Computed example of a mutant assay.
Amino acid sequence: MAPDDALVQVRGATLAYRGRRVVEAVDCDLRAGETLALLGPNGAGKTSLMRLVAGRLPPEAGAVRIGGADPYRDRDIRRHIGWVPQEIALYPRLSVSENLDVFAQLSGIARRERPALARAALDLADLADVARRPVGLLSGGYQRRVNIAASLIGRPRLVLLDEPTQGVDLAARAAIHAVLARLRAEGAAILIATHDFAEVERLADRIAVMADGRLVQEGRLPDLLARLRTAAPEHEVALADLPDAAAEAALHRAGFAPVDTGFTWRATRQGGLEGVALLAALRAQGVPVSEVRIRAPGVETLYRAALDPASTGQTQPRIIARVPS
C-alpha cells in the first residue's frame, strides 16, 4: 500500500504500560472506504493500538498519522475520528436524542448544526423509533447502536470500534453490521477489534493479527483466504457428549484439537481417513461422534496459523511478512 493512498498511517508505533511494551514497532495502513479487522488474544495490544490511532495516547516511538496529521497533537483531526469503546459510554437517564445532543456539544459542533447531524446519526444507526426513550431502558443491542451513533455525530472520516457486538443477540448484531456497511459505503475508514471470526469474514477488507504487542500477520482478507484454500479442506467433528480421557487421546491421535467448549474438534493436520471411515474409526475408539463435517478453512484457521503455525501444520515463522495490496 502506497503511503499517499492511506488515510491512517502507523509507522513503528511503540507504547509501554507499567514497564511492559503493549505495542511494539507496529506498521499498518488503512484507506478511506476500507474496513480493517484487528484480531488477537486478550492482552495482545489491540485496544492500546486503537488508542494510539484515536489520538488518546502518544506513541513513545514511531508515528501515527491521520490524513497526514498527528491525532494526539492536532485537535482538529480528532474531530474527524469516531471512537466507540467496548464499554457503553452513555447517559442512561437521558433519551437517545438528548445523548446525541450532549455528544455533539462535547465534539464542539455549533448549536445550529446539531439537530441535522443528530437526525443523520439516528437514521444511519436506524434509531429513529427509540429517539425519545431513555437509554437506560433500552436493550443492550440498542445501547450499543446508540454508542455507535454518538461517535458518528460529527460525520467522522475514521471510525474505531472495540468489540462492538460483544454480548448482543443476533438481531442486534445484524443491525450493527448494517450500520458498519453504510459507513463503509459512505467512504469512512473502519478499524474494528473483534474476537468474532464470522464478523470478520462478513465485514473486513483486511485483517491484522496481534500477539504480544506485535503484528504477526496483516493483509487483504481475500488474498490470505485464497492462499489458505489451495490446501485440502478441514475436517471437523461434532460430539454428542464431552469426551473422556481415552476419547480425547483418540481424537488427538487422529489430528484433532478442541475449538470451543469441547463439543467440537477440528483437524490440525491433513491426511488420514475421510468421511464415513473416519466416523466409524472414531466411534470404534469410544469417541461420541455425532457428525463429521468438511469445511473450507476460514478466518479462524488464519488466526490460529498466525499465532501458532505448528497448530495447523503450517511452516511459516511466527512473525509473518505483510501481504501487499
Results as ranks from 00 to 15, higher is better:
Thr165Leu: 02
Gln166Thr: 14
Ile153Glu: 00
Leu52Met: 07
Arg51Cys: 06
Glu60Gln: 12
Gly67Met: 03
Cys28Lys: 05
Arg144Asn: 08
Gln143Ile: 04
Arg295Cys: 01
Asp196Leu: 08
Leu279Ser: 05
Arg78Asn: 07
Pro297Phe: 00
Ala118Asp: 04
Val10Gln: 03
Asp162Cys: 05
Ala321Thr: 14
Arg11Tyr: 11
Glu274Phe: 04
Thr35Pro: 04
Gly262Gln: 04
His80Ile: 06
Ile176Pro: 01
Tyr303His: 07
Gly45Pro: 02
Glu248Ser: 13
Ala172Leu: 06
Ala281Asn: 07
Gln316Phe: 14
Ala188Gln: 10
Thr230Arg: 08
Thr35Ala: 12
Arg18Phe: 15
Glu248Ile: 00
Leu137Pro: 12
Val84Pro: 02
Ile109Pro: 12
Ala181Thr: 13
Ala188His: 12
Gly298Lys: 03
Arg227Cys: 03
Leu170Arg: 15
Ala6Val: 13
Ala44Leu: 10
Val8Phe: 14
Ile294Cys: 06
Arg75Trp: 04
Gln270Ile: 09
Arg11Pro: 13
Ile192Cys: 10
Leu170Phe: 14
Ala185Met: 12
Gly271Ile: 04
Ser311Glu: 07
Leu49Ala: 09
Glu274Ser: 14
Val64Phe: 09
Leu122Trp: 06
Pro156Tyr: 05
Gly12Trp: 07
Leu203Glu: 04
Glu218Met: 12
Pro233Ser: 03
Pro222Cys: 00
Asp129Asn: 15
Glu300Leu: 02
Arg318Leu: 15
Ala310Lys: 14
Ile109Gln: 02
Leu215Asn: 01
Gly271His: 08
Leu273Asn: 04
Ala280Cys: 11
Gly82Met: 05
Gly286Asn: 10
Tyr91His: 08
Ala240Ser: 10
Ile66Ser: 01
Leu15Arg: 14
Ala61Leu: 08
Leu138Trp: 03
Pro3Lys: 02
Pro134Val: 13
Glu300Ala: 05
Arg73Pro: 13
Pro3Asp: 06
Arg293Pro: 12
Gly213Tyr: 07
Leu307Trp: 03
Ala231Gln: 07
Arg184Tyr: 09
Glu113Gly: 09
Arg144Ala: 03
Asn42Glu: 15
Thr165Asp: 05
Ala89Cys: 10
Ala2Glu: 12
Ala181Arg: 13
Leu94Gly: 01
Tyr91Gln: 06
Arg51Gly: 02
Ile81Glu: 02
Tyr72Glu: 05
Leu279Phe: 09
Tyr72Leu: 04
Pro317Ile: 11
Ile319Leu: 15
Pro3Ala: 13
Leu152Val: 06
Leu137Trp: 12
Leu180Ala: 05
Arg202Trp: 08
Ala178Gln: 05
Val53Ile: 10
Met1Phe: 15
Val287Ile: 07
Ala198Arg: 07
Met50Tyr: 14
Leu221Asp: 01
Leu152Asp: 01
Ala150Leu: 07
Ile66Leu: 13
Leu170Asn: 09
Ala44Ser: 09
Ala128Glu: 09
Tyr303Ser: 01
Arg269Glu: 00
Leu160Tyr: 05
Ala175Ser: 01
Asp223Gly: 07
